[in-house]
Design a protein around this nucleic acid. Structure first.
Lengths: 169, 169
DNA sequence: AGCTGAACGTAATGCTATAACAAATCCTTG
DNA sequence: CAAGGATTTGTTATAGCATTACGTTCAGCT
């Protein structure tokens, strides 16, 4: 029962066993607080969508989410999932992973809303890492070309510590 | 006639007027040399695909390329374009832009094969920037989480110098 | 109760990408 | 040169991702 606590500020934790019920409900609480502040509504579909994403540290495709929603009595057409996902993304509660055409719950809403993503190619789990220093360098490189960076996609594919320890190639 | 020369090492140039015939044919020459070294063949479809990408500094969707190829007597089914594009990408002659689901010619084959991309949201042109320093920081950040980066997608969306000068918002 | 705007549901469609297979071409090697 | 294997091109079909358009429902307000 005394599993280690998930600390969103520690990306390594996402790849290791942790008290997932805790990290999941913490994110849900943070989400509710955040939306209340913004005056936005966490309706049943939206809430359920977030819960589904929170069940794992993996990224899920929109249709995978849709299947789950449909099975639970929500609509079964693509816009149902896309709308809920888009709402979550635009309110900082989830992220879209360009490389995977997929979505993942934000594990630390209210902190760094444009993290770098670490995607393990072996276990498929996704962690968020502090992107500020990376962005800073990118902005410098771009500035040298007279380019002003507004948004940046930073996604790393590789091997997480757990999988490396287990001897994954 | 004496337009300024395009220097692939200077990303700003991609966004400015330059002797595009030169930068295009230079890339084509470099491509041929490179493939010869690798023992790969630049067949007609592949060559034409590269030329099409080289016509602009923009990224093109696979179907946009396909339309052009079909109009010129090549096959008109998706795999025709996807195969040629995949060949170019895997041989370092073109890049795929995750954010746009599109492809752009590599303007400096044989140099930095995993650049950062600067995508102007106003003129849609794409430049390649030196990604090494950015990757270095990203690897450090990831290493702190025990994650080993193998490949990284780094794409910046923003405003290029030319568009900023023209007063684009 | 009646109004209004947000949210939800469905149908239809478009865009992106790949699997599977057949025909043509190239490159050996005898 | 002929035979055989590998590569390339082409086609059909289908899978996977995403959006447009439109009607209905529902919360919140007057």
């Amino acid at each position: 029962m005394s599993d280690r606590l998930y600390q969103p500020s520690d990306p390594a934790a996402a790849f290791q066993p942790h008290d997932h019920r805790h990290c999941s409900s913490a994110a849900l609480d943070a989400a509710e607080a955040r939306l209340a502040r913004q005056g936005a509504r966490l309706t049943p579909v939206r809430r359920r969508t977030l819960e589904i994403l929170l069940e794992s540290h993996r990224a899920m495709g929109a249709y995978e989410v849709l299947d789950r929603l449909a099975a639970e009595g929500f609509g079964r057409q693509p816009p149902v999932a896309y709308r809920a996902l888009e709402f979550l993304v635009s309110h900082g509660l989830a992220h879209r992973l360009q490389r995977l055409n997929a979505f993942a719950a934000c594990l630390n809403p209210g902190h760094d809303h444009n993290p770098a993503f670490l995607i393990c190619r072996s276990c498929d789990r996704v962690a968020e890492a502090e992107a500020a220093p990376v962005r800073a360098v990118l902005s410098d490189v771009a500035a040298a070309a007279g380019f002003r960076v507004e948004r940046a996609t930073i996604e790393a594919l590789g091997l997480c510590a757990s999988c490396a320890a287990e001897g994954a190639a």
